[in-house]
Structures are given as structure tokens and as C-alpha cells.
Design a protein around this nucleic acid. Structure first.
Lengths: 220, 220
DNA sequence: TTGAGACATGAGTTAACGCTCGTATTTTCC
DNA sequence: GGAAAATACGAGCGTTAACTCATGTCTCAA
């Protein structure tokens, strides 16, 4: 099993310089994804990944120092994909429209490979939290936070940033929770699901904003 | 590792008749919980569970045919705990009040042992889905569904039951997603979180009901 | 008291899996 | 062409962890 305790680096062991090498690396990462999707963690072994990728176990370890490094690479690949979409959505000036676009992007992404998304989500929590740095879910969280900050009332309350943090966390939680459930139910219609998530998120944000405003009026 | 392929039964191997035996079984299940909470799946081994329970590995295998059986027993223990609370909440005649009580119960339950809840949730998805039978999450789902059905407009639409199914799924997803997130952020105030979840769930349900009513008026 | 069965023990068996290393092949560059 | 570097290979090593089994101890009814 894993050499527990040996916190080896999770960065690639050697950078691929030739083209066949990058093809090998990409094949390994995609093989990891397909194994996780079809067999789950149960069959997610380095030997199986190498076999599915059509490369030898030796080649695998030439580019990844250990098994977790493969998982990290896969997580970062998927996060980068989603981050691109989310960033585009955040460019929309109207915060509400931006939020809706972000929701659609998140739903589409998670519903495109639901099993993989769920497993990677779990693994991400388990692995050494190099939260920031590199396009990880930390980056996505920041974008969501920034968009929600735009929805805040003009008057600067004390401790507003932690409220925004919480709202962003809740919005992401709602989205993930609903999409997870839909994935387990084998829902296919991403558009319908996105609308439902929009309803939930907007309903929640409006009631939160209303409460903030009433506090704002009564307290000072 | 696991003897992959051997789909042994997950039921207890032998029923405990004497009192010391039931104490042993309970100690094993609770030890499994504590290991999962403190070390995670990484250190969740049968030898570690036996050691933490203060019994020998042989005793463990006298009552559980394999490792998964321990996990299943733990899942059922936790689900039964929550189911009791949820059933009490469902007794409330006002559907909205019932829903709020159920949310409070779910939040309190999940926030009481957040790491354990999350891990068990993942394991439950992985294990052979004996969904129904015994107080499992299937039973909890049914209760939620029944409460939401009470909120439906009197006019019986076609395909209403599948809509209710979807609403229940969404409500559970919202609750789980928000509570998961809160657990990861180490939130401690369950009351505050429960209020936020109520806002999200009620906001979502109202908008869904409104849409159903407008369809109802325009279509017949 | 005593015997039978319930319960407890832990060293040992076995298979799997992460990972290494010595060797072979391909690419690059002069 | 040929040397050197990059890439590929896969048998095998070491460890881990699920699970067994032979043996010992406790409980309780008769």
C-alpha cells in the first residue's frame, strides 16, 4: 500500500520535453480518469492506470513520483477546465447574470462526468491542501466570492468580508449538493438542473440580502 | 487489500447472545467511527479498528465477515439515529414547520460528527446498494418525500410523483451540500447554519411551487 | 461441579499493490 | 553515422493489510 508518512512531493518528477513524452503523460492522466469512472477507487491502482494508458509501469513512475501525484494532476486538469468557464462567466457585468452563467458552467462540468467529479472532490479533501497556488478549487472559490461581493449593499458593514466568504461557501455548497444528487439519479438534462440550481441560489441570496438590509436599517 | 470480487455478505456473521459479546460489537463499530474521524480512510484497517476497540483481530472477524460489514453497520447505526429525529419532525402537521424541524435535525446530526458523516456518505455510495430494507438513507428519503408531497397543490397533475421525487432529491442535496461546506469550514454554530439552509430550501421550494401553479393556470 | 458452547486471542498466511532498477529503444544534435 | 540524452520497458522487491485457524478462557444451565 502507500508508504504512509512519506510525504513525497506531488509535483511531476520530470518534465516531458519530447512530444511522445507529453502524449504519455496525458494518456496516464486520462487513464486515471477512466479507471476512476468505471471501476472507482477500488480498482484505482498504478498498475491498472499504466495498463489502461498503454504504457509500462516504469514509464508512469518516470513522470509521477507517486500515485497521489497522478490524482493531483487529474484534479488540476479538471479544475483548470472549469476555471476557464467560470472566469468567462465572471466577466459579465451584471452580477446576477454572471452568477447564472457560473452556475450553468459548474452544472455542465459536473454533469459531464458525474462519477469522476464526485470522486475527485473527495480526493481533493484528503490530499495535502495546497489550496492556493495553481488553478485549483481555491481559485474558483475566489471568483465566486468576487461576484457575490458585487451584490453587496453599498454601505460597508463591519465584518462584511467574512459574510461574503460564507455566502460564497453556501452558494458553492448548494450547487455541488444539488448536482451531486442529480448525478446519482442519472439526470441528463443539464439545462433543467441549472435552472433549479439558479432558483435555489438566487432565492437564498435574496433572502440573505433582505436580512442584511433590515439589520442595516435598524441597527445604526 | 480487499479480496476484490468476493461479494461476501455484509450481514453480521454471528449474532451476539451474551452481554460481553454485544459490548464487543459496539466497541468495534464505535472504534471504526473514531478511526475514520481521526485518521480517515488512510488508516481505516481492520487491525487498527480491533486495536482501537481493545479487542483482538480474531474477535472482530467473529462478528463481521469482512471490513465492509463494519462500515455498513456503522452507516446503519448513524442512519437510524437520524431517522428517529426526522420521523419526529415529520409528525408536525404544518408541512413547512415539519420541513424546518427536519432540516434542523439533519444539520445537527451532520455537524455533530462532520468528518464521519462525509466519509460515510461516500462509502454508502460505493457499497452494494441495499438501498431499501433496514433504516437506511432510503427510509429518510421517503420521509422527506412524504412531507414535500403535503406541500403540493390540491389539483392532481400528471407525473406529479416524479416531480415530488425530484424536489425531495434537491432539498436533500441542498442540505447536504451546505452542511458539508460548513463542516469543512469548521463552522460550529448549528443554529445559524440551520437558518441558512431553511432559507435556501424554502426559497427554492416556493419558486418551484409558483412555477407549478402558473403552469397549472395556463395549461389546462 | 461440570460439560458444552459462546467468546476471545494473536501469530501466521496470502495476495495485492506501490514502487525500483537495470536494461532496451528511440530521438536529437553534431 | 554516432554519441548522448530522453524515453520506454517490465520483472521483481518489500511492505501492508485482509482474513484464518488452532488454541485458550469464560458463562451458564443442569
Amino acid at each position: 500500500m502507500s508508504r504512509t508518512g512519506k510525504a513525497a512531493s506531488l509535483k511531476p518528477r520530470k518534465a516531458a520535453t519530447q512530444m511522445r513524452a507529453s502524449r504519455t503523460v496525458e494518456a496516464i492522466v486520462e487513464a486515471a480518469a477512466r479507471i476512476l469512472e468505471t471501476v472507482g477507487m477500488e480498482g484505482y491502482t498504478t498498475n491498472a492506470v499504466a495498463a489502461r494508458a498503454g504504457v509500462s509501469i516504469g514509464s508512469l513512475y518516470q513522470y509521477f513520483p507517486n500515485k497521489d501525484a497522478i490524482t493531483v494532476a487529474l484534479i488540476e486538469r479538471e479544475a483548470a477546465l472549469l476555471l476557464t468557464q467560470v472566469n468567462e462567466a465572471a466577466a459579465e457585468p451584471e452580477w446576477k447574470a454572471a452568477l447564472k452563467l457560473m452556475i450553468t458552467a459548474a452544472v455542465r462540468h459536473q454533469l459531464s462526468r458525474p462519477v469522476l467529479s464526485r470522486l475527485l472532490d473527495v480526493e481533493e479533501a484528503r490530499l495535502p491542501t495546497r489550496d492556493e497556488a495553481a488553478p485549483g478549487s481555491g481559485a474558483i472559490f475566489k471568483v465566486v466570492r468576487a461576484v457575490i461581493a458585487r451584490a453587496m449593499p453599498a454601505t460597508a458593514l463591519p465584518g462584511l468580508s467574512s459574510v461574503v466568504e460564507q455566502l460564497a461557501s453556501d452558494v458553492i455548497g448548494i450547487t455541488r449538493g444539488m448536482t451531486d444528487m442529480a448525478g446519482r439519479r442519472h439526470e441528463a438534462d443539464g439545462l433543467d438542473l441549472a435552472l433549479r440550481v439558479e432558483n435555489a441560489v438566487c432565492g437564498y441570496l435574496f433572502s440573505a440580502l433582505k436580512q442584511m438590509n433590515s439589520h442595516d436599517l435598524h441597527a445604526p
